[in-house]
Amino acid sequence: RGITCLDHENEKVNMYCVSDDQLICALCKLVGRHRDHQVASLNDR
């Protein structure tokens, strides 16, 4: 089922925000508060 995003409840987390040490979803990176932050794919970890 996967872990859902805290900010976007219908989205699954699939990225890690290095700047905030937090799991995020694609919407967080595209339009959310993490858009200018350094992120890594969970597949890279």
Rank of each mutant, 00 (worst) to 15 (best):
R1F: 14
R1L: 06
R1S: 06
R1H: 09
R1M: 10
R1A: 07
R1Q: 13
G2T: 10
G2D: 14
G2W: 03
G2K: 12
I3W: 05
I3T: 13
I3L: 07
I3S: 09
T4I: 12
T4W: 05
T4R: 05
T4C: 06
C5P: 01
L6A: 15
L6Y: 13
D7A: 07
D7P: 01
D7E: 12
H8M: 01
H8V: 00
E9G: 11
E9Q: 12
E9W: 05
E9A: 14
E9C: 12
E9I: 07
E9Y: 10
N10C: 06
N10W: 03
N10Y: 05
N10M: 06
N10V: 03
N10R: 07
K12Q: 08
K12D: 11
V13A: 08
V13E: 05
V13T: 06
V13W: 01
N14R: 09
N14E: 14
N14Y: 07
N14T: 13
N14G: 11
N14K: 12
M15D: 11
M15W: 14
M15E: 08
M15P: 05
Y16E: 14
Y16P: 09
C17P: 04
V18L: 11
V18K: 13
V18F: 08
V18E: 14
V18N: 08
S19Y: 04
D20T: 01
D20P: 01
D20G: 01
D21S: 09
Q22I: 04
Q22D: 06
L23T: 10
L23M: 15
L23F: 13
I24A: 08
I24S: 06
I24G: 04
I24L: 02
C25N: 00
C25A: 00
A26F: 04
L27I: 02
L27W: 07
L27N: 15
C28S: 01
C28E: 00
K29G: 14
K29W: 12
K29S: 13
K29P: 10
K29L: 04
K29M: 10
L30C: 12
L30S: 15
L30W: 09
L30A: 15
L30R: 15
L30Q: 14
V31C: 09
V31M: 08
V31N: 15
V31Q: 15
V31F: 10
V31H: 14
V31S: 13
V31A: 14
G32Y: 01
G32K: 04
G32P: 03
R33M: 10
R33A: 13
R33D: 07
R33V: 09
R33F: 00
R33H: 10
H34T: 02
H34D: 01
H34Y: 01
H34V: 01
H34K: 03
H34M: 01
H34R: 02
R35E: 14
R35A: 13
D36V: 04
D36R: 05
H37S: 02
H37L: 01
H37M: 01
H37W: 02
Q38R: 11
Q38N: 08
V39C: 11
V39Y: 03
V39P: 05
V39F: 03
V39A: 09
V39T: 13
V39S: 13
A40Y: 06
A40R: 12
A40K: 07
A40E: 13
S41R: 10
S41D: 13
S41G: 11
L42P: 03
L42K: 10
L42W: 06
L42N: 12
L42A: 14
N43L: 08
D44W: 02
D44R: 07
D44G: 09
D44N: 08
D44S: 09
D44P: 10
R45C: 12
R45P: 12
